[in-house]
C-alpha cells in the first residue's frame, strides 16, 4: 500500500470532496481516500500492484476534476 497526494484545483465546495471520496467504492485497489476542499487536495491510499497513478487521474477526470500528482 502506498499513499499519494494529488492537487485538485477545480474543487468548488465540500461536496466535491465527498464526490471524490466516493471513488473508494468504485476504484479497484483503493483502500482509503481523504479529500479536502479546504486544501484542494486528495490523499489516496492504494495498492500499487492493482492500481496506477494514471488510472486514478483518469477516474478523477471522469468525475469532472483534474488531479495533479504532488
Amino acid at each position: 500500500m502506498i499513499k499519494k497526494t494529488f492537487k485538485i484545483p477545480d474543487m468548488t465546495c465540500s461536496n466535491c470532496a465527498m464526490k471524490l471520496e466516493s471513488l473508494e467504492d468504485t476504484l479497484e485497489g483503493v483502500n482509503e481516500i481523504n479529500a479536502s476542499y479546504h486544501r484542494l487536495e486528495m490523499v489516496v491510499e492504494y495498492d500499487e500492484t492493482q492500481l496506477t497513478e494514471e488510472q486514478i487521474i483518469a477516474a478523477v477526470k471522469k468525475k469532472g476534476y483534474q488531479a495533479i500528482p504532488v
Binding site: M18, E21, N34
Partner: peptide, 26 residues
C-alpha cells in the same frame, strides 16, 4: 466570496461534515 473564488481563505467558510457522516451517507 468563496463561491466567487476571491481568496483561498474563504474556503474555510465551507463547513466540511465529519468523514464518518459523509461516509455513512455515501
Amino acid at each position: 466570496l468563496r463561491m466567487f473564488n476571491v481568496h483561498p481563505i474563504f474556503r474555510y467558510f465551507s463547513v466540511e461534515p465529519p468523514k464518518f457522516i459523509t461516509r455513512y451517507i455515501r
